[in-house]
Computed example of a mutant assay.
Amino acid sequence: MADSSDSVSVDMESIPLAGKEHIVKTGRGSVSVAVFGDQDKPALITYPDLALNYMSCFQGLFFSPEAFSLLLHNFCIYHISPPGHELGAGVAGPDEPSLSVDDLADQIAEILDYFGLGAVMCLGVTAGAYILTLFAILIEFGSDSCFPYAKLSWTEWLCNKVMSNLLYICGMCVVKELLLMRYFSKDVRGSVDVPESDIVRSCRRLLGERQSPNVLRFLEAMNGRPDITNGLRKLQCRSLIFVGENSPFHYEALHTSKLDRRFSALVEVQACNGHRRTTRCDADTIRIFPHGLRFLQAISTQCQPKKPFESD
């Protein structure tokens, strides 16, 4: 096993950067899965946040070819899009049954069966992290996960209720501004004197392509989610949690990281909300993560997070 200080030389031209989309039919509807890389390599499963798909949520991977190539050198990436969030998705029909978070977690189990996957590493962002973590709890699966959060705070509940009403009445034109506040810190979103960043403009454009009823279905599923704190206490897969110090989910991340420090580690990123560009440091951390939390101390020193990892 290589030491955490070892460097990895990656031939970026030898790694295919084009993915292939699969439409997987499950007992709870069809799901779009974009597969990048060699399927003989260890599997990295991703699930995006509310109103996003893999292109918009994980665009940092694509804006940083070095980080993306490093991940593809070590993993085959399976990007799962929530129902109705895939590229070119149509509007969900009024007769389509609503999906609960349990249904979304069950879809993941069927997707893994479809691709013949065993143990996997999971990478989720906010709402997507909850779905992946619930999946691990429901089937007592030996997966490693990143970014779980467990509790629905009153602040989030109220914000989600406001967004639900606005989605129903006004559509995405108003809600996308609230979502950008959820995703990005104020300095990245820009101001009167400072233009918003390219990544925010790109995300704004992609949010404009989302179908309001589809986003509302996912939002209502998350609003009805149960508290999985007790399940997390019993779950023994390793969890690596990134959280921005200005994130609206900062409290939830801290709460989750303290459940069992034998299996979890926390990275607090300064001057950051929630979503951000994926850097080489992030990719290195994810690459080394499956080998055990003891290797993350060296990575945390290089990344200089606000708080060091805590592990027994």
Rank of each mutant, 00 (worst) to 15 (best):
T126E: 06
I241S: 02
D95K: 14
M222H: 07
A34V: 15
S257P: 11
I199N: 12
F309V: 03
F242L: 02
L293F: 00
A271M: 04
R277H: 10
F62S: 11
A129R: 04
D40W: 03
G116Q: 06
I77G: 15
N230T: 13
Y183E: 07
L132S: 09
I111M: 10
Q304A: 14
I299A: 03
L158V: 13
G37I: 15
Y130M: 15
V24I: 09
L166Y: 04
H275T: 10
C173Q: 13
L117C: 05
S143A: 15
N214Q: 02
S257V: 05
P48K: 08
P290V: 04
L206Q: 15
G19T: 07
L44W: 09
G84H: 03
I77C: 12
T278D: 05
G142Y: 01
S69W: 02
L44N: 07
S247Q: 00
R205N: 12
V33G: 03
Q270Y: 09
R294L: 02
L17G: 04
I139R: 15
S14Q: 13
H275F: 08
V243M: 01
L70P: 06
N214E: 02
T155D: 05
Y251F: 09
Y78V: 09
E196N: 11
T301G: 08
A89D: 14
E177F: 13
L259S: 01
K25N: 08
V243T: 11
R204T: 09
I286D: 02
H291G: 05
C170H: 10
P97H: 14
E252F: 02
Q297N: 07
H291E: 12
L206Y: 06
I228K: 11
Q211Y: 07
E21P: 01
I108Q: 04
H73Y: 14
F58Y: 15
G116L: 10
E209G: 00
R225F: 11
R277S: 13
S191P: 13
L138P: 02
P308D: 08
R210A: 09
I228H: 10
S4F: 02
G19R: 09
S98G: 12
D6V: 15
R280C: 08
I288S: 08
V35I: 14
